[in-house]
Every structure is written in structure tokens, then in C-alpha cells.
Design a binder for these strands. Sequence first.
DNA 1: AAGATTGCCAACCGCCAATCA
DNA 2: GTGATTGGCGGTTGGCAATCT
Length: 521
Amino acid sequence: MSMTSESEDGMVPTGALGSLAIEEAGGGGNFGVNGPLKKGPWTSAEDAILLEYVTKHGEGNWNAVQKYSGLARCGKSCRLRWANHLRPDLRKCAFTPEEERHIIELHAKMGNKWARMAAELPGRTDNEIKNYWNTRIKRRQRAGLPIYPPDICLQALNKNKQSEDMSSFSSVDGQHHDLSPINSFEIPAVEFKNLELTHQLYPPTLLEVPGRGLLDIPASSLIAQGLHSSYCSKTLLPAVHPTKRLRQSESFFPGLATNFTNAFTNCSKYQNDGPAQALQSFGYTCAYDQDLTTDHQSCSCVLPSCHALLNGNPSSSEPPRAMKQELPSLQTQIGSWCSPSSPLPSLESVDTLIQSPPTENMQSGSLSPRNSGLLDAVLYESQSLNNFKNSSCQHMSGVSTAEGEVMDNLPHDLHEIEWEAYGDPISPRGHSAASMFSEYTPISGGLLEEHQSLETTLGSKVKPEAEDMIPDEFGGKDDALNSNHMIFSRPDFLLASNCFGPKGDHGKEPLHAERYWGTSW
DNA sequence: AAGATTGCCAACCGCCAATCA
DNA sequence: GTGATTGGCGGTTGGCAATCT
């Protein structure tokens, strides 16, 4: 949408542009020294002014642009325009396949760190990369395709495995992570105080955070952590990034590491069996996973159910909610665990927090404004449903701690329903649950409203989706893909799925990578 | 053909950290 | 030391064009 107002202004010779710019600044908004600041698309004349200014004075001091050139734009807008469009070193062509590949790799490594990604892609801007990623994600999610190609996930896996091997626990000082090229995690210095808030609430990889939406997690953060339960304590917990900015919302992701720890503890037996088995053991259920027999349920069941629970929107008949497609990176969220100013709790204490959420800390006052709402609702629900504990999951042997913790909060019948789906290796409900979770974006309504929503979820709205929604190796009904796309978008899914693994037990053809991933990798 | 949907992209907004006065 | 300013970042919005129904 390049400059819609282009037609109304020709290129104006540089020099004596100020008055023109001021005249053009008709839009409302703030007032600068030259009058009202213009918003909206930039004109060629404005570009010329900005270009001239930067040529003369260099970058920086952007507010002076408006002051001295007469450009009726705020400094911020000028900086953005320069950085995204006028910089001479920009590459305006479409992303090359190599660049796309690089972006995927970088995102697997960094998450939504667009600026950092842009720094590694010469001539590309963070905005460009962000837009590319968001549209790409949207497209792939709609198509029910995973975000990350398997090799990247495995790459991340291997790297982080190496990282674990190489890293030493002595890196508590937080230095190692910048020194080690392998360890790509960024662990910010954040407060531990919110730890209890998210325990029990969020399964790995997709975390719903009120006011923040779903958090996605770079593949590297997901996969490797899960391989060993000790990983969290070694790599996630101690590392502190001294310079990482702490955003309010980024202090909100504490429970994840423990969930990882717990969730993968029971799968650690696979750790020596190679990635494939380990990944399968993670239990990120793929409806097409032919290995999803009851033998594997121990690890494959929980997360989707968690999704369903957390989503609070188990029914596909629910009105569609805004889908959060891209999410803050885990590496910052996980960092919530560790702060120089807040001693890292032992995992035991973490578990204590998980199992016995301190209710006093759940008072609204202890929640950040962004954190209230869904969290409150889920915590409340968790407590009120605690009576179901131990009764419903015991028939599911091998359910990991984290899994059980979440599952325990489900009514028994819901367990049954969910598990029936997972017992059926080709049931579409397996991933539909995940999609339910993904489709729930909390609107920061009141606690009551969310509670009600959750209640509805738990109580009655578990509705099986039609069996015919199973896509025929992604050639099936689009609706099914749409409604179930989320799990395929998750890097964890692709690791667990057989899309790049051996043929499943049921003789279904494995998904060929080139078909599965498309050709655009 | 017309309306709806999707893709794409530019720009804005809010937040935060660093710097400055 | 403190408040204001600046710059940077990530998320979101809005509009146009292309495609679909």
C-alpha cells in the first residue's frame, strides 16, 4: 500500500519543502512547532524532506526533523519512515527463499525479536520481518500447517542438547548465555514474584496470557527443555540476561519452566533414545499420529486437554474469537524465573507453588492489571475443581506431573471425553482441543464473565467434532484445518507428529515433508 | 457482478530503557 | 536524584488489492 496519496503529490525537489509539508499536514493529531502533526501515509514530498534532512544531519534527533525541516510529522514517525522505507541500504524486493529460511530459523531461536532478527538480515526491517511472519503464520495456521519445519526443530533440538552438554551450572552469573553461541535463550532479569500465577495454568508452547494473548515459544525453547527435566534447572533457570529489558508482560511467564520440568520428567526415559522418541513422548498429539495408541497416551494426552481447559472454548460452535497468531517469545518469559534480585527458588519450592497455589497471592491486588481475568478465573476454577483430583487421572498411567496437574482440574467426564478422542488415533478431536485453546483470546472482561466461560467449558460444551473433519492428509475439509490448525502451528506438534517420522501403526502413509511443509521453506 | 474474505503492507500506539537537563 | 525527552521495540490497526464465493 505504498502511499495512497502519492497521486496527489508529485516528487517535489528538495529544498524549500518545509512549507509544502506543513501545508499538507492537514490531519488532526498532535501539534508540533509547525502546527498539527500529520498522520497517515507519507507523501513523496514528505519523504524528500526527510531524506534531505537525514542526508544533511544524519540519523537521530528525530524530533528535530520536524523542528528544522518543517515536516509535520512526529519524530517517531520520521524515524520509522526512515528506517522502514528511506534508508538507502534497504532491500525492497521480496524475501528470497534463503531469507525466508533464515527468518524461520531465527524465529525458532529468538521468538518475536523482530529487531534482532532484522539485524541478522541485512537490508530488512523489523517491520518487514514481522509482517512477513505474521502473514505467513496466518497462512500456515489456516492451512493447518506447522510453523516450523521439522529440520529446524530438530536443529534447535540438537543445538540445545549441545548447549546443555556444554553449559555448566556455574553459569548462574548469567554470563554464559551471551558467550555461548549455542545457547540462544534470552533470559531477562525479572521478578519471580508472579511465579505462582501461571503455574498449573499453561501447557508448554502455547500460553494464553490475558492482555497478551497466546504466547508462542521458539522451537528451541520448547524442544530442548523438554528433553531432560534437568534442562530447566540448568539452562532455563539460572541464566540471566543482564541487559534484557523487562516489560511488564514479560514478567508473566514464570510457570512455564516448571511445567516443562514436570511435563517432561516422565518422558525423560526417552532421552537416550534419540530425538524422535523423545519428541513423540512429549505428547503433543497429532491427530494423524498413527502411534497414538493407548500405549502412548501417557505422554500424549494432556496438553491438548490443557488447551481445551485453558481455552475455555471447547466448542467449535462458539463464536470465533480473535486468534492470536504470534506471540512473545518464551525466552523472555522463562526468564521470569530468575532475577538477581529475587533468588531462584528450588524446583521443589516451585512445585510447592504449583500444587498449593498461595491463594493470598491471587488476590487481584497481586495481579498486574494485565494478568487479571483469565488467570483469576482459571485459578479459581482450579481450586473449585480440586476435588476431582486423583480420581480422574489415575486411569491414565504415566501422566506426567504437569499433565496431571492440569488434568486434575478437569471434571471426570471431560477427561473421558478428551481421552476418548485421544484414544482414537485418527480422531480429529485430538487436535481440536488444542485449537480450542488457541482460539480463545481473553477479552479482558471481568472475572465473573471469564469464570462463567470457563464453567461452561468444563461443564457442558465438550462437543465432539465431526469425524469427517479429519483432513485427508491435509487435503480434507478446510474447515477442519481451520479449526484445528493451531496444533500444527506449534513447533512441538511437528516434533511429536509423524510427519517426518516413520510410518504409523495404522498403516497410514507418513506425511511427506515436501507435501506437508509446502514448498516455501 | 457483487459482496466477502484474505493477503499484504504501512503506519500508529503503548510501553520501556537510556539519556539528558 | 528526579522528571522529561528520546529512541527503540513489539503489537496492533487500517486500508488497498487480489482472490474467492
